[in-house]
């Protein structure tokens, strides 16, 4: 697999996604809408204000989660690590639940609360990990904080009304249904985070050898750890805040890249970003087309598709994965 193949697939997926949905819009009309040509107003609105922002949001969020997954796996030296390990998803989910159930907000609005919640829990994990001193301490801190956040969500679900419970649950399943140009503008910070992660590619390669070995290659490990965690938290918490929790992309995509394109972070970070965006776009297109006009939450779909596929790959490639 090459970058050109990935980019071509992405282009195809974008065109497909612009065409399919609860209303089928012929490709000619899609082009007309994009280029300001002759097309009905309804179709123009569907293409430009409904589908296009949603497509861009899917690519940005999926890319951010997958590139973060690649970086976090490198940092933790564990091909099974996931951005959720640093507490970012559960923290965002807890703050979303606080907002939805009690109306308590760190910042006005669900999205802003969830974003700040993700960053706060990540900071907590980082701080506990720093006191523990090792990368394993941070991993364990992440597990503890995740458990606390889930307990908090459980407690909130317990006291919530049926309607509130439904919105908490639905939010946790992840959906791109709320996409508009404003959310795309917010999500445009994600590519910046991805580029900054890419700038750490050589250091991420070195740290897979071990903290000690990385230091012998001239890398200040504590600083690197903080930078990677903050960039990851940024990319993922924006995504989670805008779309809810989207499972499996951060875990599976870097694997797919390593199996097909190689393991150096020069390749894994950018290829994961593109493939993550591509897969989330495909999943989202399916989620709104298969049972149209109804939508399946895309988080369910990514897990449903990602899980078995991942199992298949593990069985096929045993030994090669390094797990």
């Amino acid at each position: 697999m090459r970058f050109s193949v990935l980019l071509l697939s992405l282009l195809l997926a974008i065109l497909t996604s612009l065409t399919f949905g609860s209303a089928l819009i012929p490709l000619a009309d899609v082009f007309a809408a994009l280029t300001g040509g002759d097309v009905t107003d309804i179709r123009r609105t569907i293409v430009l204000d409904i589908r296009l922002p949603r497509i861009l949001l899917a690519i940005l969020v999926g890319g951010g989660i997958a590139a973060s997954g690649a970086a976090i796996q490198g940092l933790f030296r564990n091909p099974l690590a996931d951005p959720a390990l640093i507490g970012v998803s559960s923290g965002a989910a807890l703050c979303a639940a606080l907002y939805l159930v009690l109306g308590a907000a760190l910042l006005p609005g669900l999205t802003a609360s969830a974003f700040v919640g993700g960053l706060l829990t990540t900071w907590l994990v980082l701080e506990i990990g720093r006191r523990g001193g090792t990368i394993s301490a941070m991993l364990l801190a992440g597990i503890a904080i995740n458990a606390l956040a889930i307990a908090g969500i459980g407690l909130l679900s317990y006291v919530s009304t049926d309607v509130q419970l439904r919105s908490v649950t639905f939010w946790a399943l992840g959906s791109l249904g709320g996409a508009d140009w404003y959310s795309v503008a917010v999500a445009s910070i994600i590519p910046v985070a991805i580029m900054l992660l890419f700038a750490e590619r050589h250091k991420l390669n070195a740290i897979t050898l071990g903290d000690q070995e990385a230091a012998y290659l001239g890398i200040s490990v504590p600083g690197l750890r903080i930078r990677i965690v903050i960039l990851t938290a940024l990319a993922v918490s924006i995504g989670v805040a805008l779309t809810g929790v989207i499972a499996f992309i951060g875990l599976v995509v870097p694997h797919l890249v390593r199996m097909t394109m190689g393991s150096t972070h020069q390749v894994v970070i950018p290829a994961s970003a593109i493939l993550g965006g591509l897969l989330l776009l495909i999943a989202d297109t399916l989620s709104r087309s298969v049972f149209a006009p109804a939508e399946i939450p895309v988080g369910i779909l990514t897990a449903l598709l990602g899980g078995p596929f991942f199992i298949l790959l593990i069985i096929r490639q045993k030994g090669k994965l390094g797990i």
Binding site: T208, R258, I323
Partner: peptide
């Protein structure tokens, strides 16, 4: 100064050549 420690925990499917290239990072 280059130091070969007793155990490296490398668990990622790099090629041998890619691992050697890591020596050039400094």
């Amino acid at each position: 100064i280059a130091f070969l420690t007793q155990s490296s925990a490398l668990d990622f499917p790099f090629t041998g050549l890619e691992v050697m290239h890591m020596g050039r990072i400094p």
